[in-house]
Design a protein around this nucleic acid. Structure first.
Length: 311
DNA sequence: AGCGGTCAAGTTGAT
DNA sequence: ATCAACTTGACCGCT
């Protein structure tokens, strides 16, 4: 496979870019999904017809989502994993090429990619928790690689430059587990490998755990400040920010959320509807960075944060 | 039309 | 042992 090339997203205005994750709170832009169980009841022909309907609708919704972002100074959009529902399922999954009207669906995704590029919008993927690159179980790794490859194909069409995952499990020995992560990077195609990023989580892998991997393997660190506060490692926000920046060969991508009942509440890892501007790290101002906003009120949370930060 | 059960998959830690 | 949490409610069959 030819080496994939990622075009850095043009930065319309140098500085802060807020990003919306996956869906809307009030806007009538809806992505539709289905389940493997429901599809198993259908014939293959009926399945493919249903998938084509859902995928075409979701590709259209994606363009609407990007248009909303462009119109409201939302600088990036995280594309939801099930935009092509059940795609990598072992028995009822499908390849895009199998779908009736596959050409139109792909063309619509490419239209999204062109729109994003023209508008200076950034897009990315965040595969769910079942994608674990460092599992000791070969089957899990194989399925994870397949999932990453599937999303890499979608990412190429939509001009998305990140596919972000967590470190995975510790299995009692983080060092060995991270070595396995590094080794399994070699199983990815160029287009998946060039987009892969890793994010610190709130249970297992801190920035201090991941930075050596990121530096050695050229995997950018998606620094999640909320997770870092839930699972600290002795490093300051400033230090991690600076180290994480250096792992990026393009504009860095960070995550931000606020705890639902405050930092002293019973479950600080749960996300609030909005962002408390006091949770926005001062170290993230003054240079080009994408900050994905993980808040349940979605576009409303971004609008409020834009106002609070005087953006 | 409204309601309740269900949804592919991994890993961890709280209960 | 079970379950919630993770990026998040939506679909489907039944009444």
């Amino acid at each position: 496979m030819a080496a994939a090339k990622i075009k850095p997203t043009p930065t319309a205005t140098a500085g802060l870019r807020l990003g919306l994750c996956c869906q809307f709170h009030e806007q009538p832009i809806k992505f539709r999904v289905t389940t493997a169980t429901a599809m198993q009841r259908l014939s293959r022909r009926q399945q493919l017809a249903r998938y084509a309907e859902l995928c075409a609708g979701n590709a259209a919704a994606l363009l609407a989502a990007l248009q909303f972002c462009a119109a409201h100074r939302v600088g990036s959009f995280r594309i939801l994993t099930p935009i092509f529902p059940v795609k990598t399922h072992p028995t009822v999954g499908y390849r895009v090429e199998e779908l009736p009207s596959a050409g139109e669906i792909i063309a619509q995704l490419q239209r999204c990619g062109e729109f994003a590029r023209a508008q200076g919008l950034r897009t990315g993927f965040h595969p769910d928790q079942f994608v674990v690159l460092n599992s000791p179980d070969e089957n899990i790794v194989a399925r994870s690689v397949a999932d990453l490859e599937s999303q890499a194909e979608l990412a190429e069409w939509t001009n998305a430059d990140t596919i972000n995952i967590h470190g995975g499990g510790a299995y009692g020995d983080k060092r060995t587990a991270l070595e396995r992560f590094a080794r399994n990077l070699n199983r990815l195609s160029a287009r998946a490998r060039a987009r892969l990023t890793v994010e610190n989580d709130d249970k297992t892998y801190t920035p201090a755990d991941l930075l050596p991997l990121c530096q050695a393997e050229g995997v950018p660190l998606v620094y999640d400040a909320h997770h870092h506060r839930c699972l600290p490692d002795g490093l300051t926000v400033e230090a991690v920010t600076e180290a994480a920046r250096k792992t990026w060969n393009r504009e860095p991508l960070f995550h931000l959320s606020s705890p639902i009942e405050g930092w002293t509440g019973p479950k600080p890892e749960r996300h609030h509807d909005y962002i408390n501007p006091k949770d926005f790290p001062a170290a993230w101002f003054g240079w080009p960075v994408t900050v994905e906003i993980e808040a349940k009120a979605k576009e409303l949370a971004i609008a409020r944060l834009q106002a609070d930060l005087n953006l």
